[in-house]
């Protein structure tokens, strides 16, 4: 059972770490905001935040105060990372929409508020040690940010699919929007299940349901991100071949 979680969690960490670094490296040459915010967001959330949380939950050899510090760090990485993913969505899909800008301000203020509230009135001790759950407001903002990102990408994918039938879009690029949307929806589902478990008093990362959820959804999410940004040659050929074989296939 632990192997399933290790594969899912490990794939998630590795994918976020490598993809995040690659996009950050890309932003050094392009000097563009989207790759910078997305790269940093992935790097902080999955590449650093998730391993930090695992050490906090499982590191019984550490003093409690150190474990609480790691949980706080995880929350900070997650909060900043999500705000960066939200910024990516806003700047890429709705740069001129004042509603999207307002939503981003609400997300940012909400995340900071939820973190400050927990720091002031709760504790960052791991759930395994009877620590506080993530505030509901923070959970809601997390799900909203991931859901919004997935929805925008999926909406654009549907547009590109129509263009693809007329030869006006690239199959692999069209598929990238689908995969990114899938990864965001899977992350939202994983986050939602994790939050429900934690609010029911179940230590998600060490429970059976948590292990299975991380194993399955974490793996699928990782494959979606990896195939979106590093499509293997066989997969790229398959996507192009499928698009070429018929208009309905895309």
């Amino acid at each position: 059972m632990e192997i399933i979680a290790a594969v899912g969690g490990g794939a998630f960490v590795l994918t976020s770490f490598v993809t995040g670094l690659r996009l950050l490296w890309l932003s050094r040459t392009t000097r563009q905001l989207p790759e910078f915010v997305l790269g940093l967001g992935l790097f902080l959330m999955g590449g650093l935040g998730y391993p930090v949380m695992m050490v906090a939950e499982l590191g019984s050899f550490l003093p409690d105060v150190a474990r609480a510090g790691l949980v706080a760090l995880n929350q900070l990485f997650g909060m900043v990372g999500l705000a960066l993913v939200g910024t990516f969505t806003w700047r890429v899909f709705r740069p001129d929409d004042p509603r999207a800008r307002t939503a981003m301000y609400v997300f940012a203020v909400g995340f900071v508020g939820a973190f400050a509230w927990r720091a002031a009135f709760g504790s960052f001790a791991p759930i395994a040690l009877g620590g506080d759950q993530t505030p509901l407001a923070h959970t809601g903002l997390t799900l909203a940010t991931l859901g919004w990102s997935g929805a925008e990408s999926f909406r654009y994918y549907l547009q590109l699919r129509k263009r693809l039938r007329l030869g006006l879009a690239d199959p692999l690029l069209t598929d990238r929007f689908r995969l990114w949307a899938s990864s965001m929806f899977l992350a939202m589902l994983l986050s939602g299940i994790s939050s429900v478990c934690n609010h029911l008093g179940i230590a998600f990362n060490t429970s059976t349901i948590g292990v299975l959820t991380v194993g399955v959804l974490g793996s699928l999410c990782s494959f979606s991100v990896w195939f979106a940004f590093f499509p293997p040659r066989f997969y790229a050929s398959w996507v192009r071949g499928r698009a070429a074989s018929g208009p309905a296939a895309a």
């Binding site: 690659r22 996009l23 890309l26 392009t30 563009q32 989207p34 790759e35 997305l38 890429v92 899909f93 654009y156 590109l160 879009a169 690239d170 692999l172 690029l173 990238r176 929007f177 990114w180 979106a228 940004f229 590093f230 499509p231």
Partner: peptide, 12 residues
């Protein structure tokens, strides 16, 4: 830029 422009750049 369009979303297409950005996503085209992000792929390996």
């Amino acid at each position: 830029e369009s979303p297409e422009d950005v996503f085209a750049r992000l792929g390996a």
